[in-house]
Design a protein around this nucleic acid. Structure first.
Length: 232
DNA sequence: TTCCAGGCAATAC
DNA sequence: GTATTGCATGGA
């Protein structure tokens, strides 16, 4: 089985298991039928129009920074705390008192770093008059490869594949990589073998995260991953 | 109590 | 160039 076939089988299997994931979650989505995935919590399965506004685009970016090494429910709390103080716009983040900002985002952890980075990103976002390139994003303090790709894929709708710790863990378990590969190499592996399509890239990463939550938290569960039987 | 969560940057070797 | 460490809260 060649790589393209393998990556297609993985995608099909995960999609059949979990369905459309409705990423990236937003504080407010309208007209989405609640599903198992939970559009009531801001997910919007089968709707790829989001983010619909510049402020929603910004909200996704802010969430991408906040969710670094942190679970989404904690980020959601932070965003709701922020929303109580201000409408979430770059101007308002810049003008918000740093101590108030820290207090609001405390649930997501690393609040001393993240507060400064949010303000820095807001300055960048205000000056944007085009879709940012990956290189531009990577220059920003607090924006590494995963965050940059998440912003491109889910905020700016650019088909840039997102790799995270789960992705690497799964590929190692499936014996598709040996573990020495760096971020860009793994990203390349997906982009060479998966159809370059925004919706597919968005779903693929979200499905990997969902699947990994089920099978890749504890090492003893790795061997029970159903994908092992699929790609033989 | 311990471990980990949708990483990143600085420092050490 | 690769490996390690600090950052921090909250939930399992």
């Amino acid at each position: 089985m060649d790589n393209k076939e393998t990556f297609q089988k993985i995608y099909d299997h995960l999609f059949n298991l979990y369905g459309p994931q409705g990423w990236w979650p937003l504080l407010e989505v309208n007209g989405c039928n609640p599903t198992k995935t939970g559009s009531i919590n801001g997910y919007h399965p089968n709707n790829y129009e989001y983010p619909k506004t510049k402020n929603q685009c910004f909200e996704v970016c802010i969430g991408a920074i906040l969710t670094q090494n942190t679970s989404w429910p904690s980020v959601e709390k932070s965003l709701k705390n922020l929303r109580k103080l201000i409408e979430i716009t770059p101007e308002n983040i810049i003008n918000l008192d740093i101590e108030q900002l820290k207090e609001a985002i405390k649930p997501s952890g690393y609040y001393n770093q993240k507060s400064v980075r949010l303000k820095g990103f807001s300055e960048f976002f205000i000056k944007l008059n085009h879709v940012p390139t990956r290189e531009e994003l990577l220059k920003l303090n607090g924006v590494g490869p995963e965050t940059a790709d998440s912003m491109l894929l889910y905020a700016f709708k650019v088909p840039s594949f997102v790799v995270d710790a789960y992705t690497k863990r799964i590929l190692i378990n499936l014996n598709l990589i040996d573990g020495s590969e760096k971020y860009d190499k793994i990203k390349e592996l997906f982009e060479e073998n998966v159809e370059k399509n925004l919706e597919i890239y968005q779903e693929y990463h979200a499905l990997i995260v969902e699947h990994a939550k089920n099978y890749y938290r504890k090492k003893e569960n790795y061997i029970t991953c159903p994908l092992l039987k699929i790609i033989k």
